[in-house]
Structure formats: C-alpha cells, structure tokens
Nucleic acid binder design. Structure first.
Lengths: 128, 128
DNA sequence: TCACTAATGCAAATGCGTTTGCATTTGCAT
DNA sequence: ATGCAAATGCAAACGCATTTGCATTAGTGA
C-alpha cells in the first residue's frame, strides 16, 4: 500500500512547477524549500518510483549528466547555457530525422542538445 | 621529452583505423590486438594526452557513456543501434540550428543522437 | 486511539569510469 | 653499451551518482 507523505508530495510539486529537467540534487534542493526534512536517498527512491510509473523520464545530458523530466510534455530538445548552466526546453524539433537516417536503418528515437549562451546571460554581458 | 612506445603507437593506430567513436575499453581491446601488453591505465593516460593535443575529442553519449573520436573528421552525428550496440557516424547534419535557437540565444555547438536499428541488424531479423 | 508497515533518514556500501603512487621497463641521447 | 627520465603495469584509490541496511518515523485502516 502506497502512502502519501509530505516528502513525496514535495517531490511531485517540484516537478509540477519545474520548467525544465532536474538533477537529483536539484530535486533535493527545491524539495527542501517545501519540506525541510528531505533526504537524497528519499529523492532517489521516489524518482525511481515515478520513472517506473511513467510520470518521469530519465535522460542523460552529455554535459550535465543524469536529469529527470516529466513525460507529459511534448517532444522537445534541450538548450544548455554554458554561462549560467541552466537548461531550457526548446519546443518542437528542427531535425530532419528521415533525412539523417541512412538507407536500411530505422530511427526510433533521437535527442538533440544545443549549447551556447541564453538570452539572460547575453544581456548581462552586452554592456550599454 | 616524449617517447615513441609501441603501446602509444598501437593506440594511435586504433584510432587511425576506427570507423566510429570508441570507449576506453574499446581502445584497450583493439589495442591489445596490436600490443598484447597494454594496460587500461596506459590507455587513459594516452587518451588524455591525445585530447590535450587536440587529436581526439571526448564525447558523452547519452546511452553509451564516454567515447573518444578523432577531431579531424567533419561535423557529423551518431546513430546508436540498440540491437548490436554499434555506433555509426552520420555524415552531415540535418538540424536547422538557427531554427531551433530561441530569439536572444546564441548556439555555439550542438549534438544529435539517433537511436534505432541499423541495416545489418534489420536484415538479420527480416527473414526473407 | 492503536497497531502495522510503508516511507524516511542516515551512513555505509556499490558500480563504474578514471586517476594515481610506485616499482619496473624501456626509449633514446650520449 | 650505459644511464636517465619517460612510459608502463598493477593495484589501490577516487569521484560521483545511486543504492541499501537498519533503526526510527509516521501514514492509515480498523
């Protein structure tokens, strides 16, 4: 029987309000804003459950490592600002999948990662 | 002073003949076909040197982890066959980078990973 | 309210890629 | 041929994400 605990609820709330994928550490920190008494092991235990439930997906970012994101958002890709280290979700997909798949191959999934500087960081350093 | 050892030469040869990115373990195994006495620590030491020299690039594949590939090949992306676990290099790029970069953002680099089944594996299971 | 057990906290343990200390081997200049 | 420092082999150590054992806490049905 599954119980409704405040730490579990906090973790779900964190994802409900997140605007991008989160690392386990992120979930811990954001979760603690809601429930001071929250442990990393608990975070992992719940992340695992939520992934098993299909609520979350675990993705491996080439530069940031393992991140978790909700599965109820449509196909998208990620932009990593190397200045502030934030991850932005990019709506849609500008990849021609069939165009990049060799003859005889079948592409089931794909991931695209962009790296650069976000608007916020560009402004800061823009001067004037 | 840098010396020319057979293990170092073997590692360079491995990359000279590789047709895709390799894991450290791959380099060890392929290198041993050339020099039986080759150690993983040596592989790592040389990989590090070659990356520092700019000969190799280290990339983090979301499904396969850290891989090393030559830097003297033109822009391309990777296809991972989930059936045989092989990595194929895809010539060119079918991503509309500017199209996927939000206003105000600047994209410096990007990576694309495709997952699916390669031609060889498709044939095997295709029956006739 | 009470008992039962799921869930948590904590700390130790794991797995895996990678690094490092040190004794030994081996290019290479002399 | 000889000597010195670079390179290697080996095994232990690391860093980091993640898991786990166990005592304690706290939902929840009765």
């Amino acid at each position: 029987m599954t119980r409704k605990t405040c730490q579990r609820e906090a973790i779900r709330q964190v994802f409900a309000h997140a605007r991008g994928p989160l690392s386990a550490e992120d979930v811990l920190n954001l979760g603690r804003e809601r429930v001071e008494r929250l442990n990393l092991a608990t975070v992992y235990r719940n992340l695992r459950i939520m992934v098993a439930e299909g609520i979350l997906r675990r993705l491996n970012h080439p530069e940031l490592g393992p991140l978790y994101e909700r599965t109820d958002i449509s196909h998208h890709h990620h932009f990593h600002c190397r200045r502030c280290d934030r991850i932005y979700e990019l709506a849609g997909c500008a990849l021609d999948v069939s165009g990049s798949t060799p003859a005889g191959f079948r592409t089931d999934e794909h991931e695209v990662f962009l790296y650069g500087v976000c608007a916020a960081c560009s402004c800061e350093s823009a001067g004037s």
